[in-house]
Computed example of a mutant assay.
Amino acid sequence: VMDAPAIAVMVQALFGGDPDQPVAPIERDLSQIETDVATTVFQEVAMALNGSGRRSLELRQPVPRAMSGNEAKRRVLRDGAAVRIIYGISTPTDTGTVTVMIPQRILLATRGATADHGGDQTTEFDWRARFSEEVMRSAVRLEATMPLARLSLGDLAAFQPGQVIEFEEDAQLQAKLSARDNTLFVCEFGKLGQNYTVRIRHPHDGGQDFIDGLVPG
C-alpha cells in the first residue's frame, strides 16, 4: 500500500520535478500515468522482498496493476497475524510511505517449522548460529565482589561509623564475577599498575557454593 504523499513524491522524482519544492498529495483516483508509477514501485519492492533460491517468498511476478479509489477500498486486508514493513520515500520537503503486509501463514510456510527445506539439514542450525551470534553481541554489566566476613545479625547491628572490618584471609582469592545477578566465575583480586584487576580462576560451581553455605568452614 502506498499513501498519497509517496505517490506524489515518486511522480515528481520520475518526471524531473524540483526536489526542493513541496508536492501536493494525490487524494483523488490515480490517473493512468500515476497508476503506472505506483505499479512500478510495487514491482521493485516485490522483487527486493521476494529474494531467490530456497529462501524465496515465491511471490507471483509480475505484481498486479495498482488500483485506487473505490476499487482499492473493496480490497480489505484480512484481520489476522501478520508482519508489517514500512518503507519511507522522501524528498527534502515531503515524505511518504510504502507499507508491506506479510501474513503469518506465508512466513510459517517459507520460514517456520513447517517449511519444506528440501532435505537441507543445515537451515535450522544456520539460523540458530546467527541468532546466537546476535545474542553474544549483547552488552552486559559485569560486577566483581569480594567476600568480607561471616557475621551474625547482632554484629551487623552493632556496627558504628568509622569502624574497620577485616577481610578473611582468603577473601582476595574468592572474588566473584557476576552479570545480571548470576555468578559466572571465581576470581582472584589484584592490581596491575594503577588499575585494580580480577583474574579468573575457574567457573563458578553453584552446587558447591550451595553446599559451602550449608556447612560453615
Rank of each mutant, 00 (worst) to 15 (best):
A24N: 12
A24D: 15
A24C: 09
P25F: 12
I26V: 12
I26W: 04
I26L: 07
E27N: 12
E27H: 06
R28C: 00
R28L: 02
D29E: 12
D29Q: 07
D29H: 00
L30H: 01
L30G: 03
L30T: 02
S31V: 08
S31W: 06
S31Y: 06
Q32F: 01
Q32P: 04
I33D: 01
I33L: 08
E34M: 02
E34H: 04
E34G: 03
E34I: 03
T35I: 05
T35L: 11
T35P: 00
D36F: 08
D36G: 07
V37N: 05
V37D: 05
A38R: 05
A38D: 09
A38I: 11
A38S: 12
A38H: 08
A38T: 09
T39A: 06
T39G: 07
T40M: 14
T40C: 11
T40H: 12
V41L: 14
V41Q: 04
V41M: 12
V41C: 10
V41H: 09
F42L: 13
F42P: 11
F42A: 15
Q43T: 10
Q43A: 14
Q43P: 02
Q43Y: 06
Q43S: 15
E44I: 13
E44W: 11
E44Y: 12
E44M: 14
E44T: 13
V45F: 08
V45I: 12
V45E: 00
V45N: 02
A46N: 00
A46C: 02
A46T: 04
A46S: 06
M47R: 15
M47G: 14
M47H: 15
A48I: 01
A48E: 05
A48Y: 03
L49Y: 03
L49M: 11
N50T: 01
N50S: 05
N50C: 01
N50A: 00
G51R: 04
G51S: 08
G51V: 01
G51E: 09
S52K: 13
S52V: 10
S52T: 12
S52I: 03
G53P: 05
G53A: 10
G53D: 06
G53H: 09
R54F: 13
R54L: 13
R54T: 14
R54N: 13
R55P: 10
R55Q: 14
R55Y: 15
S56D: 08
S56R: 04
S56I: 00
S56E: 11
S56A: 15
S56W: 04
L57A: 08
L57I: 09
L57E: 09
L57R: 09
E58M: 10
E58W: 07
E58S: 11
L59W: 04
L59E: 05
L59K: 07
L59D: 02
L59Y: 06
L59M: 11
R60S: 14
R60V: 11
Q61V: 05
Q61H: 13
Q61I: 06
Q61G: 08
V63G: 04
V63P: 01
V63L: 02
V63D: 01
V63K: 02
P64L: 04
P64W: 00
P64I: 00
P64N: 04
P64A: 01
R65H: 12
R65D: 10
A66I: 07
A66G: 10
A66W: 06
A66E: 08
M67K: 07
M67D: 02
M67R: 05
S68V: 10
S68K: 13
S68Q: 14
S68P: 12
